[in-house]
Design a protein around this nucleic acid. Structure first.
Lengths: 339, 339
DNA sequence: GATATTAATGCAATCGATTGCAAGTTGTTT
DNA sequence: AAACAACTTGCAATCGATTGCATTAATATC
């Protein structure tokens, strides 16, 4: 027993009358050790509630069995993450990692160090990295690609082969959203989102695809740069889209949060949704079903996404070849666009 | 340089022509080392981008500089966390911990081990534990109290001195919410929540306090056990509160998520909010401001809560005396209760 | 100039588990 | 009975940084 009277492997070994090497192997069920010895050691370990000191183990094996997850937050647009979408995917990742015996280290970009390679890999905090949200063309992610740190990004594939990304088929999502609005009879559809985000850019391309397909004009005046918050959805609609003048009849917001903000403004202005203006969001967060009118949206499969992120990263850590993947999306029609 | 050609302290020492002991002290700015030597070593470290191996450091110092955060999820009521409230407090904790140089290990209760003391403390994964949400009188938390693991709980103080909790003044919150409804003219106010949760129980006591103060009867038929989801808020209202029969004119929901679910049902039934029924929630999640009608609620100060959790835990780790604390709450009046 | 102080640095043990290699046992084959 | 193979186990080094104690160098004191 050491000073803090926590059992150590040596203690167990002594109790079992074997060497620490044998004890170690026995505990890990190494078949080279006689079954009887294994049983003995494992029994003693359980009896004395012995737990391997993972720190010592990490040092010796040079594996941390830990994955770091970085959530990219907007530094400017506000302190907290309001987007429930993040929480959902985070929850899945956490559960999936524990399933594979990995611990999960969580950081946001707000206060954390910027040199992820040094901080996590060189200093041996984690075996790999999951980055959620590429944000606005972030340089840090780009520069990781040249290091030995295995990592995966939730987002959109940008530079072929530069690094591995998992994400929804954003372009298709944008397309489906707008196609849906057009099917509901919309002719002049506004776009709310910030195309400096890679994912949003894709959704925006999808928006254009759908307009082109329907032979509708692409009007730049209807495309409003909007942050990922309800607040901005609200105020951009108020300040930049002069509803009457522009005569828009549909809104595609690149997140449900934005869409809810926009809805609020429409409600206040007593503009009927969906009769006068139909609206659709993106994400399918839990709240969307419960606002009034309920919000149509593009559903992202967060559970599948979280699982895939983990799987791909672990494969990468084990030197297996991996490639970027797109997850399918689908339209969820609710009241805000049904007419 | 070792095999993986990462710099090690010994390498730096060699470059600087000093012993590893000196190098170590120099790096950590130990004043016993001559300033010139310190500069030399630190310069070389920076130049060669050397980072201490935290694993080795942890092993030697017996400190992990890591805090584990456990998010208690309902195992039954569904897989994902829909409550944005959790994400907000989690974000604050993450940022606050990095500020103090700690890493944050995140787990949910869904898949994780149950013996937190063994898993985190005995195996040296973390120096302390933050538990978010006591859930339904959980036994695991209770049993931690007798171990050496320093931990803090977000929730409500239950057994005096048994362990340290930080949380909102839930009883006052419940009181304020219902008092507010009464001031708006409500006489028969329903309660939606599951009082098996410690926090909810407090809010429920506050509900009763307010009714008593106003000399209104406490009707058990108006108190409906409801899970922390919009879904359940919706269906419990539909199935158990026969609006016309009971003639309720106010609803206090113990979370905004529940309140939104309830609102949806009222909206569908074309029951006017707040004229016919006023409604108030709890939490003040970001969405509450953006539904229609916007949701009145009791605001919890998550930022202060997160900061306090970290501060108290670190104090505890440093053997300083700490005590449980209540955070103040306030009414945020919006459309759902303004009449 | 000799000794007492103080300032800097180095030696070597330590944290606890893992593992290559050697050594000891037991069993098999001829 | 010798020779060899197959099992089991132990020795001792290792992972990389930290730190108590000893030692050397520099400065002060008489």
């Amino acid at each position: 027993m050491n000073k803090k009277n926590l059992m150590t492997l040596a203690d167990i070994a002594k109790l079992a009358n074997v060497s620490t090497s044998t004890a170690s192997r026995a505990l890990r069920n190494n078949p080279v050790i006689k079954q009887a010895t294994r049983d003995l050691v494992q029994g003693l370990a359980k009896e004395h509630n012995f737990k391997v000191n993972v720190t010592a183990s990490k040092l010796r094996t040079q594996k941390t069995n830990t994955i770091a997850v970085v959530v990219m937050l907007e530094r400017k647009s506000g302190q907290v993450i309001s987007d429930p979408f993040l929480m959902e995917i985070l929850g899945t990742i956490a559960d999936e990692l524990t399933k594979f015996g990995y611990d999960m280290l969580l950081t946001t970009t707000k206060t954390a160090t910027h040199d992820w390679y040094s901080y996590y890999y060189e200093s041996k905090r984690a075996d790999g990295l999951i980055i959620i949200g590429q944000g606005e063309h972030d340089q840090r992610v780009e520069s990781l690609a040249s290091t030995k740190l295995p990592f995966v990004v939730w987002g959109t594939e940008i530079h072929e082969n530069s690094y591995t990304t998992i994400g929804s088929d954003n372009r298709k999502g944008g397309f489906l959203a707008v196609q849906h609005l057009i099917q509901q009879g919309c002719k002049r559809i506004a776009f709310l989102g910030d195309i400096n985000h890679n994912e949003v850019e894709q959704r925006w391309l999808g928006y254009q695809d759908a307009l082109k397909e329907a032979n509708l004009p692409i009007e730049h005046g209807l495309q409003i740069k909007t942050d990922f918050t309800s607040n901005d959805g609200y105020s951009k609609l108020r300040d930049h889209l002069l509803i009457e003048d522009q005569g828009i009849d549909g809104i595609f917001a690149v997140s449900d949060a934005i869409a809810l903000g926009a809805s609020k403004y429409l409600f206040e202005q007593k503009i009927e949704v969906p009769q006068k203006i139909a609206i659709i969001g993106f994400d399918d967060i839990a709240m969307s079903e419960f606002c009034s009118p309920s919000l149509s949206t593009i559903k992202q499969n967060t559970a599948a996404g979280g699982r895939l992120l983990v799987k791909i990263l672990l494969n990468k850590i084990n030197q297996q070849p991996v490639k970027s993947q797109l997850l399918d999306v689908e339209v969820v029609q609710r009241q805000s666009s049904r007419r």
